[in-house]
Amino acid sequence: SLEELLKLARHALRHGEEIHVLDRVITDEHEIKRLIEELERLI
């Protein structure tokens, strides 16, 4: 769900981890922040 993805993204950002989204691995902090902003808009 989007909520789950948002939780994962926030966790990854906090802990400096990578996040796997739709067969992509996002490691860049700015990309993760952008993902979080997009998800928050959708929810």
Rank of each mutant, 00 (worst) to 15 (best):
H11L: 05
R34N: 12
I19D: 01
I43K: 02
K7P: 00
L6D: 00
T27P: 02
L22A: 14
E37L: 13
I26L: 11
L13Q: 08
E37V: 14
E38S: 11
T27I: 10
E38M: 15
E40A: 04
L5T: 04
E4F: 09
R24C: 03
E37D: 13
R24F: 08
L13A: 09
L22I: 09
A9T: 03
S1W: 12
T27M: 08
E3F: 05
I19W: 05
I36F: 02
V25N: 06
E17P: 02
L8G: 06
L22V: 10
D28K: 11
K7E: 11
H30P: 07
L13N: 04
E3M: 07
H30A: 14
D28V: 07
I26Q: 01
L42V: 07
L6G: 00
E40T: 06
L35S: 00
E40M: 06
S1E: 14
I32F: 04
H20G: 05
E4A: 10
K7L: 11
L22D: 12
L6K: 01
E3Y: 06
H15E: 11
R14M: 15
R24P: 02
A9C: 05
A12G: 06
R24T: 07
L39E: 00
E29I: 14
I19S: 01
H15S: 13
R14P: 02
L35N: 00
E3S: 05
I36D: 00
L6I: 07
V25S: 07
E18D: 09
D28R: 07
H15W: 11
V21D: 03
A12E: 02
V21Q: 05
R10A: 06
I26R: 01
I36C: 04
S1K: 15
I26K: 01
G16A: 07
K33A: 10
E29A: 14
I36W: 01
E4W: 10
E31N: 06
V25M: 08
G16I: 04
I36S: 00
I36H: 00
R41A: 10
L42R: 12
I32Y: 02
I43Q: 03
D23Q: 06
E37C: 02
L5H: 02
L35T: 02
T27Y: 09
V21M: 11
R24L: 10
R10F: 08
I43N: 02
E37R: 13
L39P: 00
E18I: 11
E18A: 14
E18K: 11
E17M: 14
E40I: 09
D23A: 04
L39D: 00
T27R: 13
L8N: 12
E3I: 10
R34G: 10
I26D: 01
H30F: 12
K7D: 09
R34T: 13
L35H: 04
E29R: 14
V25A: 06
L22K: 15
L42F: 06
V25E: 04
L6E: 01
L13K: 05
L39Y: 04
L39F: 04
L5W: 09
V21R: 04
L2V: 06
L8H: 09
G16W: 04
R10G: 03
L2A: 05
L6C: 02
I26C: 03
E18N: 10
I36Y: 01
H20S: 08
V25H: 08
G16H: 13
L8Y: 07
D28G: 15
D23T: 03
A9N: 00
R14E: 15
H11I: 09
G16N: 10
R14Y: 14
L5V: 05
R34Y: 09
L13I: 12
E40G: 03
K7G: 09
A9W: 09
I32L: 12
